[in-house]
Simulated scan of single mutants.
Amino acid sequence: MRSPAAFISIAFATASFILTLAWSSEVVPPRIVVLTFDDSVASHATFVAPLLKKHGFGATFFITEGFEFLVDKEHYMTWEQIQQLNADGFEIGNHTRKHAGVSKQKPEQLAEDVEFIELQCAKYGIPKPVSFCYPGYQTSEPAVKLLRERGYQFARAGGARAYEPATDDPLTLPQAFDGKPDSTLEQFKAAVAQAKDGKIAVMTFHGVPDIKHPWVNTDPEKFESYMQHLKEQGCKVIALRDVAKVAQLQRN
Rank of each mutant, 00 (worst) to 15 (best):
A111R: 11
V237W: 01
V41N: 01
Q248Y: 11
L173C: 14
I8H: 12
V208I: 15
L35D: 09
K180Y: 08
F57G: 11
G125A: 05
D182I: 01
S103C: 09
K123I: 04
I126G: 01
A6V: 14
K196Q: 12
Q187V: 00
P50R: 05
G198N: 12
S16R: 15
K53S: 10
H55L: 02
A244I: 08
I82M: 01
K123P: 05
D178H: 14
Q250L: 14
D113C: 09
T204W: 05
Q120M: 15
S140K: 01
V48M: 07
L119V: 10
K145V: 09
A244H: 00
A195C: 04
Q194R: 13
D219N: 15
P129N: 11
A166L: 12
P107K: 06
W215Q: 14
I200P: 08
G93E: 04
L85P: 10
A100F: 11
C121T: 11
V216R: 01
K145N: 13
E232T: 12
R156P: 05
V48C: 07
K180D: 00
V114H: 01
K98T: 13
I8G: 11
R97D: 14
I8M: 12
I238K: 01
L146Q: 15
T46V: 01
K54S: 10
L249P: 00
A6H: 11
V71H: 07
H44V: 06
Q228V: 08
G136Y: 13
V34K: 09
A6C: 08
F67K: 02
Q138R: 12
A201H: 03
W23H: 08
F61K: 02
I211Q: 06
P30A: 14
L19R: 12
E141I: 10
K231V: 00
Q83F: 01
I117D: 00
L21R: 15
V102F: 04
Q153W: 10
L19G: 13
K231G: 00
